[in-house]
């Protein structure tokens, strides 16, 4: 089978490496880029280059940043007594979109998963402990995913912080707002009952 041109084939192959993009979608994206005018196409290319050249991890919280510290760490209006611990920067973005949390964050860059060879030393737990010990932190909100490994990671961190004068809390879990009790599974109902709150 003959190639379209070498450059177009290369572009299709690069798009096809992206998550969730198959050969057909890659071709569609490549033809979209071909149809863009030169300025628009180069804006896209520059955006990719800038991300790779300028984005790094924040030295405090490991969020994505373009300077030594991320925007959240530099924001003087943030509550510095509370740190919310998440697995990945995208979890942080999801919490930020909720718009109700005004404290700082700490990104672990993974979770403890011994079956995948991921131990605590490969995460940013040491930095978190140093932040807690050296700062004015009063509360750590564990917002790791509600899975066995996410819960295990939270449990490990709460054990590590047990000798620090800090309150460790976990995100609430239970019935989704707007759903029906009769369709909730027993584990969700058990979570909701054990985590019930006073009015």
């Amino acid at each position: 089978m003959s190639e379209v041109t070498r450059s177009v084939t290369e572009l299709i192959n690069e798009f096809a490496k992206m998550p969730g993009v198959g050969k057909k979608s890659a071709e569609r994206l490549a033809y979209y880029v071909l149809r863009l005018n030169r300025t628009e196409a180069l804006v896209l290319a520059d955006a990719i280059r800038n991300v790779k050249e300028n984005v790094r991890y924040c030295r405090n919280c490991y969020n994505l940043a373009e300077q030594e510290e991320c925007e959240i760490c530099r924001d003087p209006n943030r509550n510095r007594e509370v740190i919310c611990v998440v697995e990945q920067p995208r979890d942080l973005m999801a919490l930020e979109q909720a718009g109700t949390y005004h404290g700082l964050y700490h990104v672990l860059l993974g979770r403890i998963a011994p079956l995948e060879g991921m131990g605590p030393e490969q995460l940013t737990i040491d930095t978190l402990v140093n932040r807690v010990r050296s700062g004015t932190v009063r509360e750590i909100v564990m917002a790791t995913n509600p899975t066995v490994e996410g819960d295990g990671t939270s449990l490990y961190i709460s054990n590590v912080l047990s000798d620090c004068a800090v309150r460790v809390t976990r995100l609430a879990r239970g019935i989704t707002t707007g759903s029906m009790l009769e369709f909730a599974n027993k584990e969700v109902l058990a979570d909701a009952l054990s985590g019930r709150q006073a009015f």
């Binding site: 066995v148 295990g152 449990l155 490990y156 709460s158 054990n159 584990e187």
Partner: peptide
Amino acid sequence: RFRPTRQNL
């Protein structure tokens, strides 16, 4: 679900 009792690492 596998849910060890609290603090049971």
